[in-house]
C-alpha cells in the first residue's frame, strides 16, 4: 500500500481514561496525550493507536469492548464526556470520528456505569443481565420445522414497520447508562413491543411482558421515572413511546393474571 501522506490538519488531544484492574480494585483517571490525530480517524482507532503506544512501552493497554465498528453489534460502550456513546446523535461509540473534537480537547472516557452492569476491567462492563431478560421471555415459542408458510399470516405493513423500529435495538445498554435510575425500560420495551406488534407474538404476549419485567427487576435495574434520557442516548434513537406501550401491556397482563394465573416458565423444552 502507498505510504500515508496526508493533507489533513493533524491535531492533539488528551484522553482522560478510566483505569480499573477489576471490580474489586479502586479505579482512577489516567491522562494519555495523543498527538498527530487525524480528523478522519474514528475515536476507537485513536484508542488503538494509544494502546499500541502503551504496549511498546511495556504498559498494559486500555481494555475496551468493540467488534463490528459500524454501529450494529452493540459491543462498544464508552461514556465520553459524560454521555454514553459520546457527543454524537444516534450513533454508537464506534461511529464517532475525531473530527468531532478540536485541538487541545481533554476527552473524558469512562465505562457505562450501572449497578446491573458490573465492571470487568477499565472500560469493559458485564451486560449479561440483558441476556437473562431475553431468556425469560424475549422469544416466540416455535419449534424448528413447525412453522406455517410465511405468507399464510399477513402482517399489516404499518405494524411490521413499527415492529422493525423497535427491533433495531442493538442491546448496547446506553439507555441504562444514561438513566439516572439505571432503568432498562427502553431495552425491554423495545423487545416486548417488537414481538407484541407481530401477530405471531400474540399467544405469549402476557406471559412475555410479565416474565421479562420481573427478570429486569430481579437483575437490579432501577425504575423508570420518565426522564427520557434513554432515547436521547440510544444509538438507534428507539422512541420512548415503546415504554408507554409496554406499560399498557404490563398493566393489562397483570390485571388478567390476577384473575387467571399466567405461567412465567421459560417456554418449555418443546
Amino acid at each position: 500500500m502507498v505510504a500515508e501522506k496526508t493533507s489533513k490538519k493533524l491535531f492533539s488531544v488528551t484522553l482522560r481514561v478510566w483505569r480499573q484492574a477489576n471490580a474489586q480494585s479502586p479505579g482512577r483517571f489516567v491522562d494519555y496525550p495523543a498527538t498527530d490525530v487525524n480528523p478522519d480517524m474514528s475515536f476507537l482507532e485513536l484508542l488503538d493507536v494509544v494502546n499500541d503506544g502503551l504496549t511498546r512501552k511495556g504498559d498494559e493497554p486500555v481494555a475496551f469492548a468493540h467488534d463490528c465498528r459500524e454501529g450494529i453489534c452493540g459491543t462498544c460502550s464508552c461514556t465520553i464526556n459524560g454521555k454514553p456513546h459520546g457527543p454524537g446523535h444516534g450513533i454508537a461509540t464506534c461511529q464517532l470520528y475525531m473530527r468531532t473534537f478540536k485541538d487541545g480537547d481533554v476527552i473524558i472516557v469512562e465505562p457505562f456505569r450501572a449497578r446491573a452492569f458490573p465492571l470487568v476491567k477499565d472500560l469493559v462492563v458485564d451486560r449479561s443481565a440483558f441476556d437473562k431478560i431475553q431468556q425469560a421471555g424475549g422469544f416466540i415459542s416455535v419449534r424448528t420445522g413447525a412453522a406455517p408458510d410465511a405468507n399464510s399470516i399477513p402482517v399489516p405493513k404499518a405494524d411490521a414497520d413499527l415492529a422493525m423500529d423497535a427491533a433495531t435495538c442493538i442491546g448496547c445498554g446506553a439507555c441504562v447508562a444514561a438513566c439516572k435510575n439505571s432503568s432498562a425500560m427502553l431495552f425491554v420495551a423495545a423487545k416486548v413491543s417488537h414481538l407484541g406488534l407481530m401477530p405471531q407474538g400474540q399467544p405469549e404476549r402476557d406471559r412475555r411482558v410479565l416474565a421479562m419485567v420481573r427478570t429486569m427487576d430481579d437483575a437490579g435495574f432501577g425504575n423508570c421515572t420518565n426522564q427520557y434520557e434513554c432515547s436521547a442516548a440510544c444509538p438507534k434513537l428507539i422512541s420512548h413511546d415503546f415504554i408507554a406501550r409496554m406499560n399498557r401491556d404490563y398493566l393489562a397482563a397483570s390485571v388478567k393474571s390476577a384473575f387467571q394465573p399466567v405461567s412465567l416458565g421459560g417456554g418449555g423444552a418443546g
Binding site: P156, K157, A160
Partner: peptide, 22 residues
C-alpha cells in the same frame, strides 16, 4: 423455503407489501 417460514414464525420483521405479504 423453510428458512423463511421459520424466521417469519419467530417474529422476524421482514419488509412487507401493503397487503401484508412479504
Amino acid at each position: 423455503v423453510n428458512i423463511i417460514d421459520q424466521c417469519a414464525a419467530q417474529g422476524v420483521p421482514f419488509a412487507r407489501e401493503y397487503g401484508g405479504l412479504l
